[in-house]
Amino acid sequence: MDANDGFRRLDRRECLALLATVPTGRIVYTRQALPAVLPVNFCLDHDGAVVVRTSVSSELASAIDGAVVAFEADEVDAAAHSGWSVVALGLATLVTDPVEHARLLRTGPRSWAPAPREVFVRIAQELVTGRELVGGRTLYGVDLSS
C-alpha cells in the first residue's frame, strides 16, 4: 500500500490483467470543448489495446477518432470495502484496415446495441495506471470490515 492513502499502486501487467476481467468501462473524451464520459463495453486486443465497437454514425466515433482519450474501468465490492480502478490514456483511432476489421468482427467486442454499420475504435494505451484498495482496513478507528 502507499504510505498515506491506503491504496496499492498496480503495475502495467496487473492493470491489463484486471481490465481483461470486466466487460464495461468508460471513455472520457472532449465534446464541444467540455469533458464527456460514455460507458461502453470493450475488449482488450492481443497487444493490450482497448477495442470498442460502435455505430459508424455515432457521435463517439467521430469525436474520438485521432484524439487522445482516457479509458477507465473498475470493480468495487461495497460490502468488503475493496476494489480497483485502472485508467489508460492513449490515441483513439478507427480501424480502417479491412483485414483487421474482419478479424475484430470475429474476435472483438459484441455490440450491446447493434447498428446497421459498425466500426471498431482502438485505443492504444500510452500510459496505464491503476490502484487497488484492499478491504478490511480501519478509518479513523472505525472497523470497515464488518
Rank of each mutant, 00 (worst) to 15 (best):
D65E: 04
D65L: 03
F42Q: 00
A115N: 02
V37A: 09
L104S: 13
G66F: 07
G108E: 09
N4C: 08
R137G: 14
V68L: 10
D77I: 04
L105G: 08
D47E: 07
G108R: 06
L38R: 07
R103S: 13
A92Y: 07
A49Q: 00
N4F: 14
A92R: 09
E75R: 15
A88D: 02
R110N: 07
A113T: 12
E126N: 11
V121S: 07
A36G: 06
R122F: 11
E59I: 03
G25N: 01
L104N: 13
V142W: 11
A3M: 08
F120T: 10
S57E: 14
D2K: 08
V128N: 01
L60V: 08
P35R: 02
E132N: 07
L18P: 00
Q32H: 15
T21E: 15
P114Y: 13
V51C: 14
A17C: 08
A78M: 08
S58A: 12
E118D: 13
V40T: 06
F120Q: 09
T129D: 10
H46D: 15
C43H: 10
V121A: 11
T24S: 10
L19W: 01
A61R: 09
T129C: 07
V40Y: 02
G141T: 11
R137E: 06
V68C: 06
A20P: 01
V52C: 07
A79H: 12
V99C: 09
P35W: 06
S111G: 15
D77K: 01
L10S: 04
G135H: 00
A33P: 00
S62W: 07
Y140S: 15
V76C: 13
L144G: 15
L10A: 03
R8N: 00
L105E: 15
V37E: 05
T96Q: 10
L133H: 12
G83V: 02
A3F: 02
R12P: 10
P116I: 04
V119G: 02
D143R: 04
D97P: 14
G90Q: 12
A80K: 13
V86K: 01
V50S: 14
P114L: 11
G130D: 07
V142Q: 15
L94V: 11
G83S: 08
A3W: 03
T93F: 04
A49H: 00
V128H: 01
V134Y: 01
R110L: 14
G48E: 06
N41K: 09
L19N: 00
C43S: 15
A73P: 03
R131K: 11
L89M: 15
T21M: 12
R53V: 12
E100T: 11
A80V: 03
P109I: 12
A92E: 09
L94K: 10
D65T: 04
S111H: 09
A36M: 05
V119W: 00
V134K: 01
V56C: 06
P39Y: 05
V134T: 08
D65F: 02
L91V: 14
R110Y: 08
G136H: 07
